[in-house]
Design a binder for these strands. Sequence first.
DNA 1: TACAATTTGTGCGTATGTATA
DNA 2: ATATACATACGCACAAATTGT
Lengths: 241, 241
Amino acid sequence: MDQPLTPSYRPLYQQIKDVLLERIVSGEWAPGTFIPSESALAKEYGVSVGTLRKALDALAAEHVVLRHQGKGTVVATHDSDRSLFQFFHLVRLDGTRTLPISRVLIRERRAATAQEAEALGLRLEAAVVHIRRVRELEEVPALLEDLVVSADRFRDLEREPQTLPNTLYQLYQQRFNQSVAHAEERLFAVAAGKEEHRHLGIPSGTPLLEIHRIAKDLQGNPLEFRVSRCETQNHYYLNEL
Amino acid sequence: MDQPLTPSYRPLYQQIKDVLLERIVSGEWAPGTFIPSESALAKEYGVSVGTLRKALDALAAEHVVLRHQGKGTVVATHDSDRSLFQFFHLVRLDGTRTLPISRVLIRERRAATAQEAEALGLRLEAAVVHIRRVRELEEVPALLEDLVVSADRFRDLEREPQTLPNTLYQLYQQRFNQSVAHAEERLFAVAAGKEEHRHLGIPSGTPLLEIHRIAKDLQGNPLEFRVSRCETQNHYYLNEL
DNA sequence: TACAATTTGTGCGTATGTATA
DNA sequence: ATATACATACGCACAAATTGT
């Protein structure tokens, strides 16, 4: 009747999956590179190909790796088409999806606020890097975005690289070996304030979509806390269930 | 290089999956009932158990069926715990999730508007059933909701049953054999109007979350178009990616 | 163009473990 | 205890996609 908190055993394919994930997290298999073939890995771990397949299938289902018949299995990157829109849900009214262009307004190292520390699981006043950007879709300012990451994990991000790329998650992955795998988004409706008026060119008081996102790494640890305020006259937030 | 629009062949397990789905859609296997065992179905279709398993696993991944070790495979219903929150994303600020109580304001048969006809794939002026409800979370009015369905597919819904249940999707499933399997939600931020002021007790102009949902059946045909306006002082819309 | 080698995808069969009734 | 059903694990054969010879 009772269910043990720690299951008495974990299926073999799950154990294999954990080991493979660890080799990815550790950086041994970098994003974008091909990992050894099923048969090679099966031999290495002394399990059947079927068992190893099941482990890889599970990782593929979580978008950790991508599999290509005839080629091999590659560690997912944030520039592969799938992954690209996994965390970007803003769509133009006509249904087309484009990635936004960013203009950085603030880039600083400072102490975390209580909300930020709580979201990132840091102690109060821990050092964070704070970035504020305006993001434009098709030349139209659409989003005012504030994000913070741990200054320890993302050392010198407030200075290097000099110009930030458009898609930060690629930078996290390539420069800091931190892959954003999951995220939790909380959506609110708020009224535009002076900042939004200034940067998005909309009247104060206009209803905006406010998105609080906690981005998490492969193991579920919070990596980044991000608050976006979006104008919803020209686009909307799409969620497929 | 080219990719055929119609793949030259479909894998066996996908064909089996289609056939099984058809038996569910047709009503032969009703929601809540157990379907035959893997081995029985494998024998019936003359395929291996492994192949049949793969078909059932795919259906389970889409929440069409639920599998229970030692018991069997059951067709999903809208009152099973998982499914219950698949389409309800409003969460209280403290993180608890409760299902709302509904109070019906309008229940009528009328012609579809252009927007409604487009969303449901009906011709202009097609007959629909329109329902407006106020939904309360923990005694607090949180949502003003308008929904329309085809009056043909949901015959007499404007009259029977006399009192509508709280979770309409269960009714759709039990009374009309229409299962909501997928949905597409589009989120906007809007200002509260007089109706929201009256029914939700909030000042006009308050920013609200507006959710346009198109609910689809197992085959992807639109079943219901729903517009919800939600107050986000006491709760938020949660999306896990 | 043809062919071979490699890698993942599909399909079959079997044995054993675990959960349920 | 027994029977049933799903879950895990093994092994093998062949198909399909990719790459290089």
